[in-house]
Design a protein around this nucleic acid. Structure first.
Length: 850
RNA sequence: GCGUCUGUGGUGAAAUUGGUAAACACAACAGACUUAAAAUCUGUCGGCCGCAAGGCCUUGCCGGUUCAAGUCCGGCCAGACGCACCA
């Protein structure tokens, strides 16, 4: 028997699909649509196993939905702007555009080798001027609609890459890429008003049932909604100080005020206080990472001025403190020592008055906190008009009185901050703005878009190449015509990925989106990607969709109806005798299970399995796997065993197993086909044929549901069961057996097609079936064929399994009970004990209680 | 510190959502075929006791609810991820 030749067969069907434009999608109002999208890749050079897993999962869904009769959109593009291209330019003297487009060409070929059902006619790269020009146009719409502003602010500055870094790009106080200690700088930056939508972005999460709970909570935490009170404290000789608090109930326990180093009051007081000035500078130089801040000593500077508490005649010292953040709340707080650990530590350090005002229910009025702040529930005391109230009642009462007295206001506060989008880099979308000495900030007229990146840039000098370009930034003001300067900052690349899913609906449109096309396709029905984008990309996209709606470019709020986050692909790590990482491909397996290095022959230590990464060299090149085993085998292994949301351990044995199954499936189907002729459905079936038809229809049913629920590992297991049953089936020559086998072979090919599309097409053709299996409707499970006519019932005595009996399905409870009690094993187990109760669960179990 | 999730054989895992724990694989072992190897096929495969029939135990740990718990409830332990001086 011939072996299945994956290389030839896969190339053959990929060509047929491409030539007949099988996956080209067009709007068709008569059919239900289904938009499947995987997060588009950064064109780093070549695809990795994470991509293979991600795109295989998406492709199974796309092909399945197609078979279910949906009009499927399944596009692919490239998140093509970003620093790596500039680094390549600096290191290898290659232009970022050349580097990027060459990578795209290579990676496109790799993805096509995987046999994905992608509509390549919609392909886009975010570095195409046709794409980023539309992005610029949309930015001008945002600007005109009050969604954008420019503000001077403190930023994380990477002195090596010479650019602003987002907070999440700063790791341990150093730039994530350069490793250089990050500096704080004050710069004028463009911001998008994501905070306008903070409340909505938060509450709408509850209406995304097809998103993982985990991602929704992560976004909730990130948005950080809190309900509290803004409260004014009078200060002699100064404006009243506004603080934000979520614990107004502890007001009578207030022991002092603390304001941020960047607070206007602090700056004002510092003007004639050199020591305070020094302290403020110290604070600003302080660490920027969370970890460092946590360890940082809580320091305060007593300004000498005092604030008056609102409800009583008490003076509180005002500190400038290094732990108060200017951009959260109002940049000022009142400290309540007894009921906040940090405040308590601070009070002890600076010898402030600790007043306990809340006591647990099992304490009396002599209760006072020690070294440990009390943050639990309880009743107010030592608190004048709040005495005896619960915390919630006290909060409400303070708010009521403060609002009545006009020195406070209930507010909802968010942790989320506006999105700073300016980057001082070349390889990004230019911000379409001109700076004119007379007219100020002038948008580039839409007719002059796109503002294209210049090709002739150098990367020899540090800093922004656009800044160094001799002529590019010199333009005439679009408003007054005088000489002016182009903005040389580019967009954060997260902007590019915040709307690409919408662009896919009409990738050639002269407007950012064609509303009719977007209305047909959006929202994305199933989005698939890594959980590392749980906050940034997914939150930005949700905001962007709302911003687009505001300017008339979208009809909806939520871009992604269903979200699935897949796990990582992991591999064992290997180190040589010098502790250096070794590639798995450079290993030789010893007889005893250990390894040695291929060329040097040195022994190698096996380390724990972690996410595949170039730095640890625990990577396997997908191309080598596909060349050796074929795409179908690689896809099959990606779907086997591990649930898709969990990490997948890549093993040589696993791929071998998948490869053996590919061959076995080929054998099972080709052997089954031998001498098989089409027969009419007969009236009677043998027992064996009935059994085969049962597993056939059960498979149709369960595999469909498992694909819809992303339980691909169960899908794979069911295919194993089904094909094992077919392989074991020996037709007796009757029409019934021939029919059952024929039916099962056809169905098996259809069920396996979303996972192993090439093999399925080849089989479909060999079986002489019409058309291609990709365009064939999913088979229908017939419930009456799935039924068994007998069931195995477990018999327990006192909850422990003692016996099983085979009875007719739906047998009467009393009859089942009688049969169960008659069993010898049961009688032995029961013995002389009186039977207190017998529980019979229909078609399932009998439990005898003694 | 707060939040979310996970914990089942040598391994990846499954379990109709409270009803026979370990489906389906991987690895291992034994056998068949072969001059041999590969490939393929057959069988065994959670633990303990037993020649066997069979018995007992077993889903991180402790307790609870229930006729019945991997599944529900309470407490603990371990690990992963996210957030974190957030007032």
């Amino acid at each position: 028997m011939t072996r299945y030749n994956a290389a030839l067969t896969e190339a053959k069907w990929q060509k047929i699909w491409a030539d007949s434009e099988t996956f080209t999608a067009t709007e068709d109002p008569t059919r239900p649509k289904y938009y499947v999208l995987e997060m588009f890749p950064y064109p780093s050079g070549k695809i990795h196993m994470g991509h293979v897993r991600n795109y295989t999962q998406g492709d199974v869904v796309a092909r399945y939905r197609r078979a279910k009769g949906f009009n499927v959109l399944h596009p692919m593009g490239w998140d093509a702007f970003g620093m790596p291209a500039e680094n390549a330019a600096m290191e290898h003297n290659v232009h970022p555009a050349k580097w990027t487009y060459e990578n795209i060409a290579h990676m496109r070929g790799q993805l096509q080798q995987m046999g994905l059902s992608i509509d390549w006619s919609r392909e886009l790269a975010t570095c195409d001027p046709e794409y980023y020009g539309q992005e610029q146009k949309m930015f001008l719409d945002f600007l005109a609609n009050d969604l954008v502003y420019r503000k001077e602010s403190w930023v994380n500055w990477d002195p090596v890459d010479n650019t602003v870094l987002a907070n999440e790009q700063v790791i341990d106080g150093c730039g994530w890429r350069s490793g250089a200690p990050v500096e704080r700088r004050r710069l004028s930056q463009w911001f998008l008003k994501i905070t306008d939508y903070a409340d909505e972005l938060n509450s709408a999460l509850d209406e995304l049932p097809r998103w993982p709970e985990k991602v929704r909570t992560m976004q909730k935490n990130w948005i950080g909604r809190s309900e509290g009170l803004r409260l004014f404290f009078d200060i002699d000789g100064h404006e009243p100080l506004e603080v934000y608090t979520t614990r107004p109930d502890t007001i009578f326990g207030a022991c002092g005020m603390a304001i941020a180093a960047d607070h206007p009051l602090a700056e004002k007081l510092a003007q004639d206080n050199p020591d305070l000035q020094k302290f403020i500078i110290e604070c600003r130089a302080g660490a920027t990472t969370e970890e460092a801040m946590e360890k940082m000593e809580k320091k305060g500077f007593d300004t000498g001025i005092v604030a008056s508490t609102p409800f009583e005649d008490r003076k509180l010292p005002v500190f400038v403190a290094n732990f108060v953040l200017m951009d959260y709340g109002t940049g000022a707080i009142f400290m309540s020592a007894a009921h906040d650990q940090r405040d308590l530590d601070f009070a002890h350090k600076y010898d402030l008055d600790v007043r306990t005002v809340i006591r647990p229910d099992d304490e009396d009025d002599s209760y006072a906190v020690g070294r440990q702040a009390y943050v639990g529930p309880g009743k107010l005391f030592n608190s004048v008009f709040l005495d005896g109230m619960t915390i919630e009642e006290a909060k409400a009462e303070v708010a009521r009185r403060a609002e009545e007295g006009n020195f406070g206001k209930k507010t909802i506060n968010f942790r989320l901050r506006d999105w700073g989008i300016s980057r001082q880099r070349y390889w990004g979308c230019p911000i379409p703005i001109v700076h004119c000495d007379d007219c100020g900030i002038v948008p580039v007229p839409k007719t002059e878009l796109p503002v294209k990146l210049p090709d002739d840039v150098g990367f020899d000098k540090p800093g922004n190449p656009l800044e160094h370009h001799p002529t590019w930034k010199n333009v005439d003001c679009p408003n007054c015509g005088k000489a002016a300067r182009r903005e040389t900052d580019t967009f954060d690349t997260f902007i590019d990925s915040s709307w690409y899913f919408a662009r896919f609906c009409s990738p050639k449109s002269d407007e950012p989106v064609d509303i009719a096309a977007a209305d047909y396709w959006l929202p994305v029905d199933q989005y698939v990607g890594g959980v590392e984008h749980a906050i940034l990309h997914l939150l930005y996209s949700r905001f962007y969709t709302r911003a687009m709606k505001k300017v008339g470019l979208s009809s909806m709020d939520e871009p992604f109806d269903g979200l699935f986050t897949q796990g990582m692909v992991c591999h064992e790590t290997y180190t040589d005798t010098k502790g250096k990482w070794v590639y798995p491909a450079d290993l030789i397996h010893n007889e005893d299970g250990s390894y040695h290095e291929k060329t040097s022959g040195e022994p190698v230590t096996v380390g724990r399995s972690v996410k595949m990464s170039k730095s640890k060299k625990n990577v396997v090149d997908p191309t080598e796997i596909i060349d050796q085993y074929g795409a179908d085998t690689a896809r099959w292994f990606m779907l086997s065993d591990s649930p898709p949301e969990r990490d997948l351990e890549w093993t040589e044995e696993g791929v071998e197993g998948a490869w053996r199954f590919t061959q076995r499936l080929w054998r099972t189907i080709t052997t089954g086909m031998e001498g098989l002729t089409a027969v009419q459905k007969p009236a009677k079936f043998s027992k064996a044929a009935q059994d085969l038809r049962r597993i056939c229809h059960v498979s149709i049913d369960s595999i469909g549901r498992d694909i819809e629920d992303f339980h691909f590992n169960n899908t794979v297991a069911q295919i194993y069961k089904f094909s094992n049953a077919i392989a074991a089936f020996k037709p007796d020559g009757s029409d019934g057996d021939a029919f059952a086998l024929n039916e099962s072979l056809t169905v098996l090919v259809q069920l396996v097609a979303p996972m192993m599309p090439h093999l399925a097409e080849e089989m479909w053709q060999l079986m002489g079936m019409p058309g291609i299996v990709t365009d064939t409707l999913w088979p229908t499970a017939q419930p009456e064929l799935m039924q068994e006519n007998s069931v195995t019932i477990a018999i327990q005595v006192k909850g422990k399994l003692k016996d099983t009996i085979e009875v007719a399905k739906d047998m009467d409870k009393a009859e089942v009970e009688k049969l169960a009690l008659a069993r010898e094993r049961i009688q032995n187990a029961v013995g002389d004990n009186p039977i207190r109760k017998v529980i019979v669960v229909h078609n399932r179990i009998v439990n005898i209680v003694i």
